[in-house]
Simulated scan of single mutants.
Amino acid sequence: MTASALTRPGERERLSTKLTQIDWRIVGLLTFLAGVGTLMLYSLGKLSWEPWAAKHLIRYAVLLLAMLGLALVHPKWWFRSAYPLYGVLLVMVALVDFTPLGYTAGGAKNWLNLGVIRIQPAEFMKLGLVLALARWYHSHSAQEARWSWKLLIPAGMIGVPFVLVAAQPDLGSAMIIGLTGAAVMVLAGLSWRAIGAAAAAAVAIIPPFVMFVMHDYQRNRVLNFLNPEMDPSGTGYNIIQSKIALGSGGLMGKGFGLGSQSQLEFLPERHTDFIFSTVSEEFGFLGSFTVLAAYAALILIALRIAALSHSHFGRIASSGMTAFVALFVLINGAMVMGLAPVVGVPMPMLSYGGSGMMTVMIGFGLVMSVRVHRYAELPKGHGLF
């Protein structure tokens, strides 16, 4: 459909017209990845729908409908909710850190216990951060985005949740928050001089941060990433077993349900953080390549959608959400291959877990909203709403 057809009075408000503008390639790729995740969870459950596969599939079906619903929401509502949503999520993260409502699970106090439900605010903080940064950059000039004292504002918007989440301690989520925020600043046009200075500062800060700020178990993960054989039955065990699973799959894999490392439970967290190792073991290089190619296609399509948006908010928000998902894939892939420390970052759509899948589907709901309403213009105001 042409731009003129989409911009005729009342045309964009028709549900049937909006549905034709949804990029069904994204729906297909997400369905493929969720299907692979379900297949792997079925295999890991000893060829049973319990305890993981059925729940994973049901979650995807429900969240798919939610994503399609969000795709029909006009970007002005995402725009108006950006700052309030960021503020609410920041308060929730702080409640985890500083009140008895914080709940500890898996060695980190990163859950908010509301009685009837427990939620992980850090997961949703990633989405709120992208929206808030997109709103800020939409209302400022290209020169201010390139280099200005005003950049202290988005830097603070990134730094505060990063510090709060890192203190829980949830290094994986903190890393995603920091890198996603940095990616948005770069995509918005940050000066290369500033990027170089920030990279140099990071290189200088990382060694003392690892040695004096990190918790002991986090520091051990970093040291064992550098030398897994230092403690092969302890902190180096995860990386070693993951590498064995990856390598033993060969070209074609051992076959569905026949992976020794995963089926015999040598591979830790095989249904969450290390599920990609299971894919490699059972379906080999070809299976792993196919999954990574699906992620690459998903990211490229989403970036193309961002480029076609007429509003700066739409471009920054959708490219930021895409960067957020890409970071999940890159960090998890590097982690299971032994190219990065184990930091508890799941593989999107493959790993079992409701919060991770929900954030990805909400993110693509926003991307699809930008696609459906790509000709929409938004105001440049600096107000809260």
Rank of each mutant, 00 (worst) to 15 (best):
N220Y: 08
L70H: 06
Q120N: 12
A194I: 07
P100L: 01
L90V: 11
V210G: 02
L133K: 01
A94V: 00
D170F: 04
L33G: 13
F385E: 05
H373S: 10
Q143A: 15
L85A: 13
L95Q: 13
G107M: 07
R193Y: 15
G234P: 08
G247I: 02
G344Y: 02
A198I: 11
V73E: 00
F212V: 00
G159A: 15
I195V: 15
A245C: 11
P341C: 09
L72H: 03
V279P: 03
A317M: 00
S311A: 04
V73G: 00
L57P: 04
E13G: 13
N110M: 03
S81E: 03
R80E: 04
I119C: 08
Q263V: 07
K76I: 12
N110W: 01
G107E: 04
A340V: 02
M125S: 15
H373Y: 15
G128I: 07
Q241E: 15
V88D: 12
L64Q: 14
H271R: 05
S288L: 02
Q241W: 14
A293D: 11
L6P: 00
M230V: 14
F364L: 15
L251Q: 05
F328D: 11
I176A: 09
F32C: 00
G284V: 03
L251C: 07
M125P: 13
S369A: 10
S233H: 05
G353W: 03
D23V: 02
N110H: 13
A108G: 00
A134R: 08
A194P: 00
F212A: 07
R371W: 08
A145P: 09
I275G: 05
L190W: 09
Q261C: 04
A66T: 05
W24K: 11
H215V: 15
A340Q: 08
P379I: 10
W147V: 12
S233F: 09
A3E: 11
G102C: 03
W147H: 15
W192Y: 15
V73W: 00
S16H: 14
T2Q: 11
V93I: 06
A132P: 13
V165S: 03
L226I: 12
D231F: 06
V130R: 09
T31Q: 12
I158P: 12
E282C: 02
S309N: 09
V88K: 05
P208L: 06
L171V: 02
T31S: 14
R371A: 14
E377A: 12
T7L: 03
E281R: 01
W52Y: 14
Y217G: 11
K46S: 07
G381L: 06
L57G: 14
L64V: 12
E144G: 00
R315A: 00
A317P: 01
K55P: 08
L171E: 01
A174V: 06
R193C: 10
G320Q: 08
V345D: 06
F364A: 06
Y237D: 01
I158L: 15
I195L: 08
A174F: 05
V88A: 13
A307P: 05
K55W: 10
D97M: 07
P84V: 07
I153R: 15
A302C: 13
L226P: 11
Y60W: 12
A376N: 00
G106R: 01
E377V: 12
G259W: 05
M211Y: 15
K46F: 06
S191C: 08
A199Q: 04
